[in-house]
Amino acid sequence: MTAPPVLSVGNLAKAYGGVHALDGVSFDVHAGELLALIGPNGAGKSTCFNVVNGQIRPDAGTVRLEGRDITGLPPRAIARLGVGRTFQIAAVFGSLTVLANVETALLASRGASFGLWRPQDGQARGEALDLLAQTGLAALADRPATGLAYGDVKRLELAIAIAGSPRLLLMDEPTAGMGTHERLALIGLVRRLAAARSLAVLFTEHSMDVVFGHATRVIVLARGRVIADGSVEEIRADPQVRAVYLGRSAATGERGS
């Protein structure tokens, strides 16, 4: 691939009281790619994620977005530069309608949140409806976000996250808390959106059926270091990965109900 990476992480380090959460982590994510970040608990996945997102400032190393150094910027600034994210426990704006959720995110991405006089209604309606159609929520546009089924909340959060037409989408355990069918449907939707928008997606995940079924590349973290980086097949076969993370049976991707 010759195009420059959307996200380039170089030599990230972060320690908490002597424990190295990240210890020289480097990797790239390219447009259209679904990169899964996996590893045992405490391996540094969350820290890595939050450094890229801007919630944590690293001790050392750089985060570059399309060549631009974004290390240490606050989350809202990183968001406006083209990074969307979803949370492990999906968060939406409960007191707004589904449509207003997306409109609010759209206007925020344009830096228009300080509009004080003209009603928001109608300022970004067309685009918001378009996003709802793409995520299969069009029929729910006028419903309050509180009280949606969890699967719909997840899709709404996805619509919010891509509202600013980001280049990079960060998803923290995107399918946590969902049943098998919903889980695969959601990751399928992410895959279609990523392809259509040539979006780079970085996600953490514990469900191996999602990782092995849908990731285009996998990175394995353990004790703050990258111990493997490769295709699904390579990762599945890697003896070190099997030893520290996958174990005996899970490499076959067995999980679900």
Binding site: R76, A79, G84, F87, A91, F93, G94, L96, T104, A105
Partner: peptide
């Protein structure tokens, strides 16, 4: 209201 309902979500959307 977005910041009240879900502060981190709002920040992550650029608010």
């Amino acid at each position: 209201r977005a910041g009240r309902d879900a502060r981190m979500r709002a920040e992550a959307s650029g608010i």
